[in-house]
Write a protein that binds this DNA or RNA. Structure first.
Lengths: 255, 255
DNA sequence: CAGTGGTCTAGACCACGTT
DNA sequence: ACGTGGTCTAGACCACTGA
C-alpha cells in the first residue's frame, strides 16, 4: 500500500528536547546569552531535570552550549579552528608554535607511550608538559615524552627543578636532532584529572587526543600526546582555520 | 608544615567506579567477554544503576566497552586505525578507497555546507551518500555535496533513480575535473538519526566529523562531511595505522 | 549568602535481541 | 517470554560561583 510507514518508534523525549532547544538557540538567543536554569527549563518543558540534562549534555557535546557550575548555561560561540597541520619538519617548540612550556619531569612513560617509543619496561623519559593557548583560552594540554637516549646532553639538566626552564632546555636539545618525519592520529578520549584542571574542565570531559610520533635517526625520538578540548575546538589540517563553520545549520529555505 | 594537602574534594563515585572497572578490565577480562548486567554490577558496587551507567558511559566513550541493547555489555577490542590521510590529488571515489556508494539525491545542502561551497541560498547540489567499511564493519557515513555547477554533464543523470548507480555517475563526472587541493577539519559531533542507523549506533552517539573541501578551478568544487564512529575508530594521518595503540595503560612498573 | 550546575538514589517502564 | 540496555521520574544533597 501507499501508506508511508509513520515512525513506529516514538522519538525519545530528550532527543525531541534537543531539537526544540537547538532551534530556539538559532532563533532566540545570542552567543554568550545565559539560558534559564535547569530546574526552570525542566518545568517549562514538563520533564524531569535528568531528562532535560540529557538534552543539554548532548548540545554541550556538539559545542552549542557551555555549562559552568555555580554560574549557569550559556550559548557557546562557534568552535575555534585550531591548526594542527604538520609544520614542514618542525620539532615541537621550534619557532613560535603557540605552545607554552609549563614543566618537565623525568619518569617512565605510560606503557601505551612506551610501546610507541619502542622503549623497554621502566625506561625513563623526559616528560615535558606544555599548554596551548588560542584566543586567550587554554585549548590543549600536552605531554611530550623524550627518552633519555634521544637527548644525550640532557642528563645535565636533571638537576634543574621541574619548572618551565627545564622544559625549555629539553626542547632545545631536541631541536639539535634532525627530524626525519612524523606521524599523527586523532581519537576521542575523556580528560584525565590533571588535563581537565589545566583546561578548566571537569574530569571526564570529552577531548580530542592527538598522538604524534617524531622520527629521528631511524627511530621514534619523541612522542607527544596532546589533549584538545572537544567542546571548543575544531582541529584543522591545512588553511581551513579562518573559515567559520557551524554544523548547526538547518536546511536552507528555497522560498 | 609537611602535611600533603589530602584531596579536600572527595572523588565522585562514578569516577572511582570508572577506575575500578577499568583496572578489572585490564586484568580480569578478555576482549569480547560479556560483563555482568548493569543491575547486578550496580548491586555489587553498592550504587544506583544510574551511577553505574555514568561510569560505563565514559568507558564506552573511551572505546573500552561496547553496549548493545538486548544483548549486553562487552569488552571492546582496541580501536582500529582508519587512514584519513590525504591521497595525493585524489578525488573521492577514485581507485579503491574503501568507500562504497549507497545513493544520491539532489537538493539544497544544509546552510553550513552551502557556506563552504560559496553557494547561494537554495542552490541545489548532488548529494552522494557513501559508507566506509573497515574490517567488515561500517566505520563512517559520508555525505558528499557536489554543486550542480561543478559537474556540468551530470544533469543528464537526474533521471536515474537515487541509487548507487546515480552516485557512481556523479563521482565519475567529478573525476574529470582537475583537483587543485584540499582541506580538512576534524571535530566532535553526535550522530544524526540517519548516520546513526547506517553506523549501527543510537542517535546522539559520539562521532568524529571530518569535513573536507575539494578545490578545483579556483573554487570549492565539492564538500564532504564524513561521520566516523568515535568509539571504534582512531583517525590516522600518515603510516600510523598498523600500530596497536591503547591509551588504557597504567604506568609501567620499574620493579 | 542564594543560586547554579554536578552527583546520586530507588524506583518504573520501554525497546530490542535472543531464545 | 525473558533478559538486556535505554529512557524517565521526583525527589535529595553537594560543590562551586558570585554578590
Amino acid at each position: 500500500m501507499g501508506t508511508t510507514q509513520l515512525e513506529t518508534v516514538p522519538e525519545p523525549k530528550y532527543v525531541h528536547l534537543k531539537t526544540v532547544i537547538s532551534e530556539a538557540l538559532d532563533s532566540d538567543f545570542a552567543v554568550g546569552e545565559i539560558l534559564p536554569n535547569e530546574r526552570d527549563l525542566a518545568a517549562r518543558f514538563g520533564v524531569a531535570r535528568a531528562t532535560l540534562r540529557q538534552a543539554l549534555e548532548q548540545l554541550e557535546l556538539e559545542g552549542r552550549l557551555q555549562r559552568r557550575r555555580g554560574v549557569g548555561t550559556t550559548v557557546a560561540p562557534p568552535r575555534m579552528g585550531v591548526d594542527v597541520s604538520t609544520p614542514r619538519h618542525g620539532w615541537p617548540g621550534a619557532g613560535q608554535d603557540a605552545w607554552q612550556p609549563v614543566g618537565c619531569t623525568t619518569a617512565p612513560p605510560p606503557c601505551s607511550v612506551a610501546r610507541l617509543l619502542d622503549a623497554d619496561d621502566g625506561e625513563e623519559a623526559h616528560t615535558v608538559r606544555r599548554l596551548r593557548l588560542s584566543q586567550g583560552q587554554p585549548v590543549a594540554a600536552e605531554l611530550l615524552y623524550v627518552p633519555l637516549a634521544s637527548v644525550p646532553a640532557a642528563p645535565a639538566v636533571v638537576d634543574v627543578p621541574s619548572g618551565p626552564a627545564r622544559a625549555r632546555s629539553v626542547l632545545r636539545e631536541l631541536q639539535r636532532l634532525t627530524l626525519e618525519g612524523q606521524d599523527r592520529a586523532v581519537e576521542l578520549g575523556s580528560a584525565r584529572a590533571d588535563d581537565a584542571k589545566e583546561l578548566d574542565r571537569l574530569p571526564g570531559a570529552p577531548v580530542l587526543v592527538v598522538t604524534t610520533r617524531y622520527f629521528s635517526g631511524g627511530r621514534t625520538a619523541a612522542v607527544s600526546v596532546a589533549t584538545y578540548r572537544a567542546d571548543t575546538c575544531r582541529l584543522t589540517f591545512g588553511d581551513f582555520g579562518d573559515l567559520e563553520i557551524s554544523h548547526h545549520g538547518q536546511r536552507r529555505q528555497a522560498s
